[in-house]
Write a protein that binds this DNA or RNA. Structure first.
Lengths: 222, 222
DNA sequence: GACTGTGAATAAGTTCACAGCT
DNA sequence: AGCTGTGAACTTATTCACAGTC
């Protein structure tokens, strides 16, 4: 089953495994079982074995997975073995906080360029990365080999930014703007919509208390 | 099929419908079909009809959905008809940006308290809401009837914060800390993990270019 | 004996297709 | 004629269960 079509959910779980493996490596744990990974991630052991098996047979039967080896493999699969370059568009409150957050921890993705259309913000530096004028977006992204675009601009500007990033060859977008971006197939979008997240949580917040409209017990964590 | 067990995915789509309905209401559109909602949200019309039908029959056959009525209904279902109260824990870079973001737009969830354990941050105000010392968390949350907790503290503090919020009766958590929180059943967690999001995007970023480990075309947006 | 890798069974979620109102 | 509401068919994802390997 190597190199088949891999479910998006499986790809999204890989970074979770990677995080746990990094912790285990720091604790000098040399070998780990899918059962132990299950305990630490909250996913089932079968699911973990299946996810990993999509990419190859990384474990040893009767033994488990070699922590450091599996960690290296997952980093390779995700392309994190050589730092992936990202660009942030929009250096407002949220954008600036995101940039600082992303730049101050080592997860294999590095912000190499920041753009903003407001001349008052251009020229500033965020954690050592200069804020460039929006006009340079296509040029700079191509020159710096940017692969991931982080969109933190107002809703009405997001679609245009997505298109410009796509034109510059950026194929993965992390979108914080509260709109659904329309992009062509090779481009992949992941939305982080705070309003939507809060609003759907409100449903569960109400359910716990008086007069819930739909009585249910939502499935707990695994 | 009224009031049955409602899939979590359906609940997460409701705020998307709400957003579109609000736009339509502003444009004075009185009636909308599931096909039009599909066009605007990217979900299929059947899915939209099914999602809405979980909560009741809100439409009129042969006509469609009355924009304002459906909007009101969804707000009721989500409990947004009376502002849901939220508390932010952690007023660092990210927490502060989140607070400003959430406080400056009207989506039915209101941050009524902010907590931080750093005395240097206590006493400050973020968009009019004072930063309180962490010790007041349980008391203030109970007194202010907080339903949603937003966790923006460092990873190692997150679990403890979650437990304290739960003890204060908060049943819905939006977690920005890069850890899986262990909570008891009535409490519902939604994770927003930027590192994980970026790392999984890296997979698709690499796929578009040279030497991808697993060649595939990820499913595009609907 | 322990643990992986994987087909088979099950569950969850989506799409089809159409009956039922307006 | 038009559009909702919903069982049935299908697709996707998860769990079961066990053969295979160390």
């Amino acid at each position: 089953m190597r190199r088949a079509r891999i479910p998006e959910v499986s790809v999204r779980r890989l970074p979770v495994y990677l995080r746990v493996l990094t912790e285990l490596a720091e604790q000098q744990v040399e070998v780990v079982s899918s059962a132990e990974l299950a305990r630490r991630t909250g996913f089932s052991s079968e699911q973990i074995r299946k996810d990993l098996a999509y990419f190859g047979a990384f474990g040893t039967r009767g033994v488990g997975y070699h922590t450091e080896l599996l960690r290296t493999r997952i980093r390779q699969i995700l392309g994190l073995d050589r730092d992936v370059r990202a660009a942030l568009v929009g250096a407002g409150n949220l954008g600036t906080a995101l940039a600082r957050y992303v730049l101050t921890r080592d997860h294999g993705v590095r912000i190499v360029a920041i753009f903003d259309s407001d001349p008052r913000r251009v020229g500033a530096e965020i954690a050592g990365v200069p804020v460039r004028p929006a006009e340079q977006l296509e040029d700079a992204c191509r020159r710096l080999d940017v692969r991931i675009g982080i969109i933190a601009v107002p809703a009405q500007a997001a679609q245009q930014v997505a298109e410009r990033l796509a034109r510059a060859g950026v194929v993965a977008l992390l979108n914080f703007a509260p709109v659904r971006l329309r992009v062509e197939p090779p481009v992949h979008v992941q939305d982080v919509d705070l309003s939507l997240a809060l609003q759907s949580l409100a449903y569960y917040a109400a359910a716990g208390s008086a007069a819930p409209l739909a009585v249910e017990r939502p499935a707990g964590e695994g």
